[in-house]
Computed example of a mutant assay.
Amino acid sequence: MADVAREAGVSGQTVSRVVNGRLNVDQATRQRVLDAMRTVGYRPNSAARALRYGQFRSIGVIMGVVSTFGNSRTLDAITSAAVAKGYSITLMPVTRPTPGEVMGAFSRLDEQAVDGVVILIEEHELDQSEVEVPDGLPVVVISNPRSGYPMVDTDQAQGAELATTHLLELGHRTVWHLSGPPHSYAAERREQSWRATLRRHDRQAPPVVVGDWSAESGYVQGMKLCADAAVTAVFAANDQMALGLLRALHELARLVPAEVSVVGFDDMAEAAHFWPPLTTVRQSFAEVGRRAVDALLAEIESGERHVVSVKLPTTLVHRSSTAPPP
Rank of each mutant, 00 (worst) to 15 (best):
V65H: 11
D26Y: 01
V234N: 08
A215S: 13
Q204W: 00
I300G: 09
S179Y: 03
V210P: 06
R57F: 01
R73D: 11
A230F: 00
D110C: 08
V131G: 03
A298D: 15
R32Y: 04
D267E: 15
A157G: 15
G148M: 09
G21D: 08
Q55K: 12
A5N: 09
V139Q: 07
L297E: 08
R30H: 11
L278F: 04
H273I: 03
G21A: 07
Y149C: 10
L198Q: 06
T95S: 13
S184W: 02
A8G: 02
V288W: 04
S184V: 02
M37A: 04
P181L: 05
E130K: 15
G9W: 03
V131C: 04
V293K: 15
T79Q: 14
S58N: 13
P182R: 15
E287F: 00
D35E: 14
L297V: 15
A269K: 11
H172F: 03
L162G: 03
R254W: 03
R96K: 13
L34Q: 13
R254T: 05
R305S: 14
D202H: 11
G222S: 06
D202F: 00
F285K: 02
Y53Q: 08
G289D: 06
H306Y: 05
P325V: 08
V19H: 05
L252K: 01
V102C: 04
L162D: 05
D228C: 05
L137M: 14
R200W: 00
V208Y: 09
R195V: 09
P150R: 07
E259M: 02
G21E: 10
Q240V: 01
I300M: 14
F274H: 12
A258P: 06
V4R: 08
E7C: 07
N24W: 07
I142G: 12
D76S: 14
V10I: 09
R305H: 05
M37G: 08
A233D: 04
I142A: 10
D153Q: 12
T279L: 08
V260H: 10
A113L: 13
T154L: 12
E101Y: 05
E270Q: 11
A248G: 03
L255T: 12
M1D: 04
I119Q: 08
M92H: 02
E188H: 05
A8E: 04
H166W: 15
A227W: 06
D239M: 00
D26Q: 07
S46A: 14
D3K: 12
L51W: 05
G41E: 12
S214L: 13
F106A: 01
G171T: 07
A82G: 14
W213G: 07
G218Q: 02
N71H: 12
E132T: 10
V281W: 01
A8C: 04
A229Y: 05
A187I: 01
V231S: 08
F56A: 12
A47D: 07
A233G: 04
E161H: 14
G303W: 07
A269M: 08
H306A: 13
E111I: 04
A113K: 14
R30L: 12
D239Q: 06
W176Q: 13
G41C: 11
S179V: 00
G104L: 05
L109H: 01
T154R: 08
P145F: 12
G211T: 02
A77C: 12
V83F: 02
A113D: 03
L91M: 07
I300Q: 09
R290D: 11
I121P: 03
S320D: 15
R200F: 00
